[in-house]
Write a protein that binds this DNA or RNA. Structure first.
Lengths: 356, 356
DNA sequence: CTGAAAGCGCTTACAG
DNA sequence: CTGAAAGCGCTTACAG
């Protein structure tokens, strides 16, 4: 018994007594097909378990139904969230997600990008930091005329669509939280110098202090680079000062975990002696004791929005006329996640570990 | 100025003064092309920046150059490692990785799988737990005749290729480590009941105790399900016993983190009062204080091996004759990662937090 | 509302 | 060592 060959559009057309063009129309939901005809075709499609072959559609139609996701550090907390949102939205839209892990400083980066886009011809590309700020990557994409959406890029240039959250505002909110708990000696550990998110989060921190007329103390500002190690180092620096801070805002969770580890090693109680706040809401943030107060970036929503900017959302079609077009630069809402690593100044923690 | 249309194989053939078949031969590294001809073609390819279009290759040749990766829980620590290894090996082999996030208990799971394979016709599929043990998924794949490799499946059936590590042995080693540190009251938190890894790790634990003539105490065996929460619960149970264990082996890091959080909440010193060992070496394992002793699963290597089983490794071709074929069921070596959450019985920890 | 023709850009037999 | 032909399975204009 020979392996059953998958049905083609010709099989369906023959069986349904129509032309392949009509089958094509039904499958692509084109208007202008009699409902009887449509149903007859759909029945045969179901009977024969017919599925259009993507490579044929792609070759003939010029669309690949593929979206590319380019990322650098696979362990970066947000990549997982972005991928999850992207893959789900792609499925809903009949697309598929092709992923590629790239080194941001590989010498042949442009070639690797070019290889992917010229072979696959994806209908769109999603870029995460820091790749979305890499001129070489953007140039390679531009040359192949592949539409792309940048997730949290350094700057919003008009060339590329983008999706981001409001880093400044979020940092301001989390600093306000610490202030509302009575803290005034609030340290900040800054993120990597070359990433704009670092600058924005620092801005929010400074703005909150200023709004509450708390002088910005240079001794409480330490440079980090978003890694656990620099969080540890920064904490040792800060906690060895004659006048220790009573709260630390780390520009991401990774560094906040470093601060927590260092504080515990030094025998400080968190949040009794020191409140700690992070940024990202990584999986690990809820898996330490005490669990971290942080900011949740809506990674999956951002990715879904990115896919929609690429393939068009269902609403776009309907709302084409009348409504104004959605901006190509979208800012999505974030969420403050208050857990047990922050407490009122002077209070002693008494809570039991909560479930993850 | 019209957008520069990408060169096709016809352009290359014309420019090089050969037939398209010869260009095809050169590109696919087929033998039997004069080296002068070959070089002439390659020069034109470079000049014109010609890249074969994948959809055309796929339609004509019956290979898609796509490998699919199916996973369930995107936050599961090993998915990141698997994906990283798979994407890199795919790139080396001229393939691309398409990812799909699936719910293991979705009612339309088979349809979702079928949708992907019938549309994309990937040349191979990589399945991670628990999807690799899902009969519905395997059936859907079987029907479409898509070759697949299972990563750490429950059982090695002859139908499917697989890649795994030696869970029994690794668990035995980590238990031996605790015994060598002087511990005899060693508790274990078992993993999810339906996963075979749970059983295997327990076996290794039991074997180590037996080899050292330590009686297995039922009171020191607690059921978990691989989540942080069950780690916390299990720890409270174990640590409230009249005779506390002096060491805990949690069947994965997630639960080990739960034990650590609970111990810290109860004011116990780790590893002074309690040694804790995990399994997986997740990113978080190195980002807590004290950092966890654990077992590193070679996720990326396992994924690379999986890709090779699917597309054939470079060596396969050469070694085709003579050597015996590589087994379709491969077991890769693991690595014990000894950090600061384990110490000799009675010792007090004095180390400083190490860098991540 | 429906169809016949051409073509997308490659690879597969098959010749020579 | 090289090539002319056919064909993969769809969609795009273009007719009617």
């Amino acid at each position: 018994m020979p392996p059953p060959k998958p049905a083609t559009i010709i099989d369906v057309a023959r069986e349904a007594g129509v032309s392949i063009k009509t089958v094509s129309r039904v499958l692509n939901q084109e208007p202008g097909v009699h409902s009887d005809t449509r149903e007859a075709v759909l029945k045969v499609v179901a009977d024969l378990k017919y599925r259009p072959k993507q490579s044929a559609r792609s070759l003939a139609g010029g669309r690949s139904f593929l979206i590319g996701l380019l990322y650098y550090d696979p362990s970066a907390a947000f990549v997982g969230g972005v991928q999850q949102g992207a893959t789900l939205r792609c499925r809903e839209a009949g697309y598929h997600l092709v992923v590629e892990s790239l080194h941001n400083d590989a010498p042949d980066l442009p070639m690797q990008v070019d290889r992917m886009v010229s072979a696959l011809r994806p209908d769109g590309m999603i870029l995460t930091p820091p790749l979305c700020d890499n001129p070489q990557v953007l140039a390679a994409l531009q040359e192949s005329q592949t539409p792309c959406v940048l997730i949290s890029p350094a700057a919003d240039d008009p060339e590329h669509a983008s999706v981001r959250m409001d880093d400044v505002h979020a940092a301001e909110e989390i600093t306000n939280l610490l202030i509302s708990l009575g803290h005034t000696r609030i340290a900040i550990i800054k993120g990597a110098k070359d990433q704009v998110a670092s600058k924005r989060r620092y801005q929010g921190y400074a703005a909150a202090l200023k709004a509450h007329k708390i002088a910005l103390d240079k001794d409480l500002v330490v440079q980090g680079d978003f890694t656990f190690d620099t969080g540890v180092d920064a904490a040792y620096q800060l906690l060895s000062r004659r006048q220790r801070p009573t709260a630390v805002f780390a520009s991401n969770d990774e560094m906040a975990l470093g601060v927590l580890a260092a504080a515990q090693r030094l025998g400080l109680s968190v949040p009794g002696d020191l409140s700690i706040a992070g940024f990202d809401d990584t999986p690990a943030a809820a898996r330490v004791w005490p669990p971290l107060t942080t900011v949740r970036q809506p990674m999956d929503d951002m990715a879904r929005a990115a896919v929609e900017l690429l393939v068009g959302s269902p609403r776009d079609a309907e709302a084409a006329e009348g409504e104004e077009p959605k901006s190509r630069h979208r800012v999505l809402p974030h969420e403050l996640v208050v857990r047990d690593s922050t407490a009122a100044l002077g209070a002693k923690a008494t809570a039991r570990p909560k479930k993850g």
